[in-house]
Amino acid sequence: MGVGIEVTNLNAWYGTNHTLQDINLHIPANHATALIGPSGCGKSTFVRCLNRMHETNPIARVTGGVKVGDVDIYADAKPVEIRRRIGMVFQRPNPFPTMSIYDNVASGLKLNGYRNRRVLDEIVEKSLRNSALWDEVKDDLRKKSGASLSGGQQQRLCIARALAVDPEVLLMDEPASALDPVSTSKIEDLIFELKSQYTIVIVTHNMQQAARVAEKTGFFLNGRLVEFDSTHKIFTNPSDKRTEDYITGRFG
């Protein structure tokens, strides 16, 4: 089961660029939360702060608190431990091209020294079933490389890879923006399925996508969280004028 995330006074910088300013919000457990906003508004930076990926860039800096479940990830833990508990799916599918499909899915567990073959087999199958890829690849698990799949399949493989370590939170940074409409709808169905078991945070450019998959939606603009509310409220009766302008397509 997933856990909730409590963000307090989060600030982030890229060099001198103050990309996130005083973000406060609560992301509920076992729901999908969408983050929308125009390009460069800080929504990607925000999810990258939730698993401490932001700081892998040497010029990046973060202050403030992020509590995932009971753990303040910036105070009580090392980045490596945090990232084992929080899965991430990137904008562009990035399977490991030199590994088979099986090894791609098992990579997170193998990395951490998990060697029980029988359990690995089970987890690989379960993860691929959960990411709706099993039927398409079950005959080529060890024969084909991760890079031989189509773009949409690659992205579902990346989701399976993230799910295999049974994360408490799944972060998705525009997971469908590089995909065609059919693959996109598969990914959306998947998010819909998965959100009962995992806490999902999804960054998206596509407002319909946010409306379809998420219970909660946050609107980011210029590094600030303008509004955070139920998806229904955001898309039908936003309280901030800027949110309304954005969702009605007046800018962005």
Partner: peptide
């Protein structure tokens, strides 16, 4: 590509594991 390094890091890899799996392997 940088995305390979990020993929490994996001799985909770240490620096050496990232280099071994994300860089040297490729």
């Amino acid at each position: 590509p940088h995305s390979q390094r990020e993929a490994v890091l996001a799985l909770g890899a240490t620096r050496w594991e990232m280099i071994r799996m994300g860089v040297l392997r490729n």
